[in-house]
């Protein structure tokens, strides 16, 4: 049969020689390899004590952002919810009243905002869809829990701490990822 390309390499398979048929040299070679691995550096990271540094593109738990004055960015536009492939996000919008200007940045805001962490696949599409820089994925895990209930995160759990009232918490939550997004 004519070969399809000129890169065909015909392998000549010779019968095993006597030494090869003994298999013992090959076995000893293999054992030498495994033995040498005893002294190699271990790849294991002992998790709770040691932590692997997160990659800058790591996508963890969602955080709802506030601006410098501590007003919520989210306007309940629903783009995150429509972008979400797992349909994990739900929300309800409301109109900002006269005395609520210090709470919400725009005239519409998310009165209710929920992410079902059991559904969330941490794909980051909500972050990409958000036109208001209101949601981003932080570098933390969603903590494990015993009840399904506790995995439905409402605004209380998701909102970033207030930048003026709780400066420390805000700075801690504002990880390098936000810094990078700001640029």
């Amino acid at each position: 049969m004519a070969s399809l390309t000129n890169r065909v390499k015909v392998l000549e398979q010779q019968p095993l020689s006597f030494m090869e048929r003994l298999y013992l040299p090959a076995i000893f070679k293999g054992m030498a390899i495994t033995f040498s691995h005893i002294f190699k550096k271990k790849a294991t990271i002992r998790y709770p004590e040691e932590k692997r540094p997160f990659s800058p593109v790591f996508r963890g738990l969602q955080v709802l952002n506030r601006d410098e004055e501590g007003r919520e960015n989210c306007t309940a536009c629903g783009l995150c919810a429509v972008a979400c492939p797992a349909e994990a996000i739900t929300m309800e919008g409301a109109e900002r009243q006269k005395n609520e200007e210090h709470l919400y940045r725009e005239e519409k805001y998310a009165a209710k905002y929920e992410i079902n962490m059991l559904r969330c696949i941490f794909c980051g599409l909500c972050e990409e869809a958000c036109p208001k820089d209101a949601i981003y994925l932080s570098e933390t895990f969603a903590p494990s829990n015993f009840t399904r209930k506790s995995f439905i995160y409402s605004k209380d759990e998701l909102l970033i701490p207030h930048p003026i009232n709780d400066k420390e918490g805000y700075d801690a939550a504002r990880v390098s990822r936000v810094e990078k997004l700001k640029k």
């Binding site: 739900t90 309800e92 409301a94 009243q97 009165a111 929920e114």
Partner: peptide, 25 residues
């Protein structure tokens, strides 16, 4: 509804004339 606050059956949005406000919720 025992877990999620969104789509609370006790709030009938269609029955409100104007937009929902903080008072509604």
């Amino acid at each position: 509804h025992s877990v999620s606050e969104v789509n609370d059956p006790s709030i009938d949005l269609s029955a409100i004339d104007g937009p929902a406000t903080s008072a509604t919720y």
